[in-house]
């Protein structure tokens, strides 16, 4: 198993390099010339152009520049923002990631604390109206993107029901303001988690040992908690990477609506300012987060499901 983990970690390295390469290539050939952008009003000056290009090391071959970038990235240096000369890309990300992580943390709690119980209920009430209702909600709800949910929640909860008044801005985990974005962000994955739990529990409920337990007269809930939940959690874990991806996408679309100074807002702002170094950094970091999530899933999987063999 150690061998498996080592191998798994080793695959991580070329994949990370490939991700950086793809991002760097797109950022290198895609947008306008960074040297001209830096020259500003003197951009037509060929002599200054060549001088600055040389100074920035941009007249060297692509591979050499990429190697430099990769090396710098490994040391946590993602370069400088084009838009603001006093801003390091790494610093901008380090300042916004904790905010998004806090929001994602709050959303994950909602996903787990609401999604799993609902899935359990649906499975235990299999083929009753409760099950049908919950299943139809998952199918309907998972089609609604966050930027549609946000105004709908705003119209219903703020305008019609008058339930929440402080919805914009950011004051950290312990404030009323996190409720709305956390709920909206949790909505889609929550339904997915519910569906997975239901499916997992249904499968286990049909296993012999559970049938025996039920026949022995243990109530449905006790069985559910003792035997079922542990086995049903496996498919949940395998899909953690998807949930993380969803949270990242959601934060891009959601944070700017609610004025949350997180990773998503940074991306949207850089997009508007065409700040490519920041966009490159956020893309690499976003991909790395998902890779790490998948890695953790694989490792935890080994401990949770002893049936899996790794040879």
């Amino acid at each position: 198993m150690t061998l498996y983990l080592v191998r798994r970690l080793l695959v991580f390295i070329p994949t990370f390099m490939a991700i950086t390469l793809i991002t760097y290539t797109l950022g290198f050939y895609g947008p306008g010339d960074p040297v001209r952008i830096r020259l500003g009003e003197n951009w037509h000056d060929e002599e200054a152009y060549l001088a600055l290009k040389h100074e920035l090391g941009l007249d060297r071959p692509f591979t050499e520049q990429f190697a430099d970038y990769l090396w710098a990235v490994l040391q946590g240096d993602f370069g400088e923002s084009i838009y603001r000369s006093d801003l390091q890309v790494g610093e901008a990300m380090a300042n916004t990631l904790p905010v998004s992580a806090t929001l994602a943390f709050a959303s994950s709690l909602v996903i787990i604390l609401v999604g799993i119980p609902l899935g359990l209920i649906a499975a235990l009430k299999h083929n009753t109206w409760i099950d049908y209702l919950l299943v139809s909600i998952t199918v309907l709800g998972s089609s609604i993107p966050v930027f549609v949910l946000a105004p709908i929640f705003m119209i219903v909860l703020v305008l019609k029901l008058n339930l929440i008044d402080k919805i914009y801005g950011w004051e950290g985990l312990f404030s009323q303001k996190i409720i709305m974005p956390a709920l909206i962000l949790a909505f889609g994955p929550l339904l997915g988690v519910m569906r997975l739990t239901r499916q997992g529990v249904l499968e286990v409920l049909n296993q012999d040992y559970v049938r025996t337990a039920r026949a022995k007269g243990l109530s449905g809930w006790v069985v559910a908690i003792r035997h079922v939940l542990r086995n049903a959690i496996t498919p949940l874990l395998t899909n953690m990477g998807l949930v993380v991806a969803f949270l990242i996408t959601g934060s891009i679309l959601l944070e700017s609506i609610f004025g949350i100074p997180g990773f998503g807002s940074l991306i949207v702002r850089s997009l508007r300012q065409r700040d490519y170094p920041i966009l490159m950094g956020t893309t690499i970091i976003g991909a790395s987060i998902i890779m790490v999530a998948n890695l953790i899933v694989d490792i935890v999987y080994v401990y949770i499901d002893p049936r899996v063999s790794y040879n």
Binding site: A101, T102, L173, F174
Partner: peptide, 20 residues
């Protein structure tokens, strides 16, 4: 309640408390 349950596990907590 969530915070009480998970406070030690949340790495972002100090910064956040600071802000609020």
């Amino acid at each position: 309640m969530l915070a009480a349950a998970c406070a030690p596990a949340a790495p972002a907590a100090p910064a956040v408390e600071d802000e609020s």
